[in-house]
Amino acid sequence: MSDTPLSNTPPVEQTVAVACDPLGDSFAARNLADELGLAWLGTVQPKYVKDYPVLLYMDEQGLALQLTGKGAPGPVRAEFVTGKMGYRREHGGGTGQLIARAVGLQKTRAELHVVDATAGLGQDAFVLAGLGCRLTVFERNPVIHALLADGLARAVLNTECAPVAHRITLLPGNSVDWLRQAGPDAADVIYLDPMFPHRDKSALVKKEMQVFRQVVGDDDNSAQLLEAALACARYRVVVKRPRKAPSVSGPKPATQVEGKSSRYDIYPIKALPA
C-alpha cells in the first residue's frame, strides 16, 4: 500500500461505511466507525447497500472489507490463523518463499529487524515473522490498517500463531515520514510492496484487488519510499514488483529474485551478518 493520499481516489468517507452482521460485535464496530469518522449503518446485509461501494464489515469471524450490491465477491480480511496463511504455517512456514530469499534469510542466522513500509494485509510480514524476523509494519490507509490490526489481534489469541504475531509491531502513520526521521541503520532490511495492477488469475487476488482499488487506488510515491528506505536500511532494501514491470524510479537494483508473476528487486547496502 502507498503512504501518500492519492488525488484521484475519492475520500474514504465517501467510499466506505461501517456495518455489522447479526453475529458480529456491533459495539466494537460502532466504536470503529466513530474512530475512523465513517458512517455507521448498523446491522445490514451488504447486498442491499447502495450508497457505499465498500463496507468495513464486522461479522462473527472479525473485521472484513466487503463490496456491496448483489453478486459481489465475499469478504476480504487479514487472516493468519486459517486459509492460505494457516496452510503455509503448517507446511514449513514459508521457508521456500521467494521473499525469504530476497530478504537474505538463507545467508544469515541473525534475527533481522525488517520494516515493512507498505504492509497491506500483512501476509509477507507474517511470513517473515514466522521465519524469525522482527517486524515493524506500517499501513497508511486507515481502513486497511484497521483490518490488519484486527487480524493480528485474532492471531495473538491462537496458540500456534501468537509467537509469530508478537514479533510484529504495527505502527500508525506515514512510513515515509518515519523513514525520513529514523536515520541510518534504523532497520536491517526495509521491504516495499507498492500497489500495482495484479495480473494473477486467482479468484482471491481478483477479489482483493477489487476491494483495494475502491479503498486505496494506485501508489504514486514509490520513488520517495525507495529514496527514504535506502537512507536508513542497514543491509538492504527489497522492492516487490510485477515480473515484467519496470523498476521503481531511482537507483537500479543490483539483483533480482524472480517468480512466475512477480519479482523482488534487491538494493544491497552491505553484506548481511553471517
Results as ranks from 00 to 15, higher is better:
residue 5 P to D: 07
residue 5 P to V: 12
residue 6 L to Q: 09
residue 7 S to R: 07
residue 8 N to I: 03
residue 10 P to R: 09
residue 11 P to D: 09
residue 12 V to F: 02
residue 12 V to W: 03
residue 14 Q to K: 06
residue 16 V to I: 07
residue 21 D to N: 05
residue 22 P to Q: 07
residue 23 L to F: 05
residue 23 L to N: 08
residue 28 A to S: 12
residue 29 A to T: 04
residue 31 N to F: 02
residue 31 N to L: 05
residue 33 A to M: 05
residue 35 E to F: 01
residue 35 E to C: 04
residue 38 L to T: 10
residue 38 L to S: 08
residue 42 G to A: 07
residue 44 V to S: 02
residue 45 Q to R: 09
residue 53 P to I: 06
residue 53 P to M: 08
residue 54 V to Q: 13
residue 54 V to A: 15
residue 60 E to I: 10
residue 61 Q to I: 10
residue 62 G to T: 11
residue 63 L to V: 02
residue 66 Q to H: 14
residue 67 L to H: 04
residue 67 L to S: 13
residue 69 G to D: 14
residue 72 A to M: 13
residue 73 P to V: 15
residue 82 T to W: 09
residue 85 M to A: 08
residue 94 G to M: 09
residue 95 T to P: 03
residue 95 T to Y: 08
residue 96 G to D: 11
residue 100 A to G: 09
residue 102 A to P: 05
residue 107 K to A: 10
residue 107 K to R: 14
residue 107 K to F: 06
residue 109 R to M: 05
residue 109 R to Y: 06
residue 110 A to L: 08
residue 110 A to I: 04
residue 110 A to Y: 08
residue 113 H to S: 14
residue 114 V to M: 10
residue 118 T to S: 07
residue 120 G to D: 02
residue 120 G to W: 00
residue 127 V to T: 07
residue 128 L to H: 09
residue 129 A to M: 07
residue 137 V to G: 00
residue 143 V to Y: 06
residue 145 H to C: 00
residue 147 L to W: 00
residue 150 D to K: 00
residue 157 L to A: 11
residue 157 L to R: 13
residue 158 N to R: 11
residue 160 E to T: 10
residue 168 I to F: 02
residue 170 L to F: 00
residue 170 L to Y: 00
residue 173 G to L: 03
residue 176 V to F: 07
residue 179 L to A: 11
residue 181 Q to M: 13
residue 184 P to V: 14
residue 189 V to W: 13
residue 190 I to E: 03
residue 194 P to T: 14
residue 197 P to V: 06
residue 199 R to I: 02
residue 200 D to I: 12
residue 203 A to K: 15
residue 205 V to S: 15
residue 206 K to C: 12
residue 207 K to D: 02
residue 215 V to G: 12
residue 221 N to C: 12
residue 223 A to D: 11
residue 224 Q to A: 13
residue 229 A to M: 08
residue 229 A to F: 01
residue 234 R to K: 15
residue 235 Y to K: 13
residue 236 R to N: 15
residue 238 V to R: 01
residue 238 V to Q: 09
residue 238 V to T: 14
residue 239 V to Q: 02
residue 240 K to Y: 12
residue 241 R to Q: 14
residue 241 R to W: 11
residue 242 P to L: 05
residue 247 S to D: 15
residue 248 V to F: 10
residue 249 S to W: 05
residue 251 P to K: 10
residue 252 K to L: 14
residue 253 P to S: 12
residue 255 T to R: 14
residue 255 T to Q: 14
residue 257 V to P: 01
residue 257 V to E: 14
residue 258 E to H: 10
residue 259 G to E: 06
residue 263 R to F: 01
residue 263 R to I: 01
residue 264 Y to T: 08
residue 266 I to E: 15
